[in-house]
Computed example of a mutant assay.
Amino acid sequence: MKIYLNGQLVSKDEAKISVFDHGLLYGDGIFEGIRIYNRKVFLLEEHIERLYESAHAIRLPIPLSPAEMTKAVEETVAANELVDGYIRLVITRGSGSLGLDIRRTSDPQVIIIADKISLYPEELYEQGLKIITASTIRNHPQALSPRIKSLNYLNNILAKIEGSDAGCLEAVMLNHKGEVAECTGDNIFIVKNGVLKTPSTDAGILDGITRRAVLRLAREAKLEIMETTMTRHELYVADECFLTGSAAEVIAVVELDGRLIGDGKPGPVTKDLKSRFEKLTRE
């Protein structure tokens, strides 16, 4: 495996950063998770745009231009000879002192890892997931904007632990108002009476790249779409439910908090959008 580290492709064992890096000390940095399909980086332009928006929001200077970053990602994929895989693109604040002052940091680190990923067992893409609602909520949007894809995922990790303890691979997270936000690593959709519904970005969710792609596919399929406030009750009584994410792709949810969703099987709209998404990844 070759990892891109600040302009060089190095072995996994050689890919090292300072223990004083604020990405390690404080989770001060940003990242993107990106898919590779048939040797092509999927929706790379959208991921790069979001990366630089996150960086700008936290005043983190990236030492490469977007064009240079794009080239670095593509070169890393080629060096690892990946046909299908996953990229983790990380920018840290850089090395500094044992304090919070960003003025005492320097040399932001650019790290690109290209590898394989399997978030869920293959059979669950056919059968659907059973999930729970976590008691850990999403960060308050006035504390940390959910539009920033930062290195600090501790609340998501705590919610993921709750799901794991309950024997589930995912968990729904509510926002500070008690409304449905998203899952620990995925955006969430439901179908009710033929209408596709998903929480709006105002609910405190990450503006997912795969979420955007699925919404575009739904429009092409002439589905009625609502980006709206949602409650757990609406999930319980939905006809269908599914999740989207760069790592997760599109996967059905068939049970939430011990309640079957629909008939307990992936529904027709979910299957159609999953098929459309798979086709999109191979174009």
Score class of each variant (00 low, 15 high):
Y37L: 02
N38V: 09
K40V: 06
K40H: 08
V41H: 00
F42W: 05
L43M: 08
L43G: 05
E45W: 10
E46H: 12
E46N: 01
E46Y: 12
E46V: 09
I48A: 05
I48D: 03
E49F: 04
E49S: 11
R50T: 02
L51E: 12
L51N: 03
L51T: 04
Y52T: 02
E53M: 10
S54R: 01
S54P: 07
A55C: 12
A55K: 02
A55M: 06
A55V: 10
I58F: 05
I58S: 03
I58L: 02
R59P: 01
L60T: 01
L60E: 02
L60Y: 02
P61L: 02
P61K: 02
P61F: 02
I62K: 00
P63D: 07
S65P: 00
S65Y: 12
P66D: 12
P66I: 07
A67K: 05
E68A: 05
E68W: 02
E68V: 00
E68S: 04
M69E: 10
M69P: 00
M69Y: 11
T70L: 08
V73F: 08
E74Y: 09
E74D: 04
E74L: 12
E74F: 08
E75Y: 14
V77Q: 04
A78R: 03
E81Q: 09
L82I: 03
L82C: 00
L82F: 01
V83S: 02
D84W: 09
D84A: 05
G85L: 06
G85C: 08
I87V: 06
I87Y: 00
R88E: 00
L89I: 04
V90E: 02
V90K: 01
I91Y: 09
G94P: 06
G94R: 02
G94H: 05
G96L: 03
S97V: 07
S97D: 05
L98V: 08
L98S: 02
L100N: 10
D101H: 10
I102R: 14
I102G: 14
R103E: 11
R103T: 13
R103A: 12
R103M: 11
R103Q: 08
R104H: 14
T105K: 14
P108H: 08
Q109N: 14
Q109P: 03
Q109W: 12
Q109S: 15
V110W: 11
V110M: 13
I112T: 13
I113A: 15
I113T: 15
A114Q: 05
K116Y: 10
K116A: 05
I117K: 06
S118W: 09
S118C: 12
S118K: 15
Y120E: 00
Y120G: 04
Y120D: 00
Y120R: 15
P121K: 06
E122V: 13
E122P: 08
L124Y: 04
Y125T: 08
E126D: 11
E126M: 06
Q127P: 11
Q127K: 03
G128P: 09
G128W: 06
G128F: 10
L129Y: 13
K130Y: 10
K130C: 11
I131L: 08
I132F: 13
I132W: 13
I132D: 15
T133W: 08
A134L: 11
A134H: 12
S135W: 09
